[in-house]
């Protein structure tokens, strides 16, 4: 018996326009799948988690691999920009470090050369590493369908494991992130079973703005510890209501833990993951605060 029989049968089509891609999606319905880096798609097809009669390659469509930055309008990222491209892009590193850090924690160097941000978000795994970053950056996702383009906020996009706001015959073409204030700092902390190369058990993204003069704000989002990536809004409100410091951070970490609802599985128990949400949130807040004061 062959243990590894290759990929099941499908047809491959490289779309030449976005309209062609969504028309094919419409015509084939659930028999068609969009292809970018294939790093979620191919394992799914091999394991028989789903089938596909046709794969529609959309990563080479105009704009999909582009990254544009403007001090006023912010950052626009083509959906097919890869994790390595994000992780090493100087503007992303300097202005949106939480995204560069998150992209750099995905899998291995080889996978990051293929894995795209759009594929990561549309696959909508609760442990998708770039998802918490898009929540704290208040990103909007640009979705293209037969009726044209619309924008959906990151907060509205994730609906459940593998479930998104994408309609049938719609695809993600880009991610838009508002301009980042000049005094901003961020940290993405990811806990896996080993130091690198593993899916996250807990992911915590923290952004901070402002400085020690009392006008500061924090945003916190959690990955892998709920059916979708989640924003820890009560923890953020707790921080907004008092001076920054150890006491505020400890209280916020408790509230972040309360915002999580992990389930036990082979990779870790719910109790462990909840405790680690508190620990990582505390560490990330301290780190971001130290960066803001520096």
């Amino acid at each position: 018996m062959f243990a590894r029989p290759g990929l099941p049968r499908f047809d491959y089509v490289q779309a030449s326009t976005a309209d062609e891609a969504v028309t094919l999606l419409q015509d084939y319905g659930p028999d068609a799948r969009l292809l970018m880096g294939g790093t979620d798609l191919f394992p799914g097809l091999r394991e028989g988690r789903f089938g596909a009669r046709v794969l529609i390659d959309v990563k080479q469509l105009p704009g999909m691999r582009q990254l544009d930055h403007d001090d006023e309008t912010g950052l626009t990222i083509g959906a097919a920009v890869t994790m390595n491209e994000l992780a090493r892009h100087p503007v992303v590193q300097a202005r949106y470090p939480v995204l560069a850090q998150a992209a750099g924690t995905v899998a291995s160097y080889q996978i990051r050369n293929r894995a795209t941000i759009g594929g990561n978000l549309c696959n909508a795994s609760p442990c998708a590493d770039t998802a918490p970053a898009t929540l704290v950056l208040e990103a909007e996702f640009l979705l293209y369908g037969l009726q044209g383009e619309r924008a959906v906020t990151a907060g509205e996009f994730f609906r459940g494991p593998g479930q998104t706001a994408l309609r049938p015959a719609e695809m993600m073409v880009g991610i838009r992130i508002p301009a980042s204030p000049s005094r901003a700092a961020a940290r993405y902390l990811k806990l896996g079973r080993c130091r690198s190369g593993d899916l996250s058990l807990v992911g915590v993204a923290v952004c901070g703005f402002g400085n020690g003069d009392g006008r500061h704000a924090f945003r916190i989002a959690l990955g892998s510890v709920a059916p979708t990536p989640v924003r820890a809004s009560e923890a953020e409100a707790h921080l907004a209501s008092q001076p920054a410091g150890e006491a505020a951070f400890a209280g916020a970490a408790e509230k972040a833990m309360a915002a999580s609802s992990p389930i036990s599985d082979v990779r870790g128990t719910a109790e462990y993951q909840r405790a680690m949400v508190r620990t990582l949130t505390l560490r990330a807040l301290r780190d971001v605060w130290a960066q803001l004061l520096a």
């Binding site: 491959y12 880096g37 294939g38 790093t39 191919f42 390595n84 160097y109 080889q110 996978i111 050369n113």
Partner: peptide
Amino acid sequence: EPVNSCMML
């Protein structure tokens, strides 16, 4: 650039 050739068509 290094890639996994099992993960590319």
